[in-house]
Amino acid sequence: MKTGIPDNEQPVQDSLMKRFRDQFSIFFVFLVFSSFIWVVIKLSKDFTSTITYNINFKNAPKGRIISGSSDTVINVGLDAKGFTLIKYHFLQKIPVINIDLTGLKIRYYAGKEEGCLPLNDQIQKIASQIGVKRDLVFVSPDTIRFEFLTKYKRQIPVLPQVSYELRPQFMLYDSVQIQPDSIWVFGPEELIDSIQFIYTEQKSFSDLSENQELELRLIKPESNLVSLSENRVKILIPVEKYTERSFELPVNIVNSGTEYALRIFPEKVIVNCLVALKDYNRVDEAMFEAVVTYDSVEMQAATRLKVNLVKYPSFVHIARVEPERIEFILIKSANKP
């Protein structure tokens, strides 16, 4: 193969290129080394630098909520050696500085409650949180202003957002139990008065055939001014297998003994109910009472009286009363005109 370079010039060119590469490598190594030395010398000197921190307020005056503050960040001026500043800037930067409001004086101004906190008084506390001793030279702003609202509390019921589907023949044995069923909500009066319920996170179940016990997170109202006494609640969904039972009951007449005697047809009704298997032997006729009420007004208008089940165990579900309405005859007492 032919190239533009004569065959006898090729080794000379290769030799020159190799020499150049070797010299460049040496140059680069020295360049890096000298730069490093330069940085070390520079960072060994003192600098003044400003670092911005997010701030969090704690120990608000008793019974008050901070509804607003003039600043949410502070700038901290540090006078330190370069190495130390790098540490504060990048290596050990704390996410937030807590500002302690203990002892803050509240003043009333134009119907509002306000407070002023000179940050110079807090310099030592801020320095200790950042981890500096004598390097901290200033804090900006020098004062933070606050607006306060009175803190109210109200007990508000918890509403679980639980949906479920039960397996055939299974039913809810009792209502869904929530522990605690209400919690304390803290915040400005106007806000907490507008809250009817505290909702849980949503959860759904399908084909339930046994008790479900779980912990659900409470959904905090959107406003930052509102806080909750609990973050989670326990939920119990009691589930049992049910079967049908029926009882024949005499129908009692309530408020009889007026000038008319009431005769009812039939005198007995059949109550069909659903009972949990575990309660099957617990339930008997004596736990039920069916009545019709002697009501002359109703009787004038109706041909049948409604049978009311006035007593039955709380742990059964009444499926139907047969018949639901019964017929009657009013018999005038013999001694009445």
Partner: peptide
Amino acid sequence: DGIEPLVK
């Protein structure tokens, strides 16, 4: 039939 009044 549970609809027609029996007593009447």
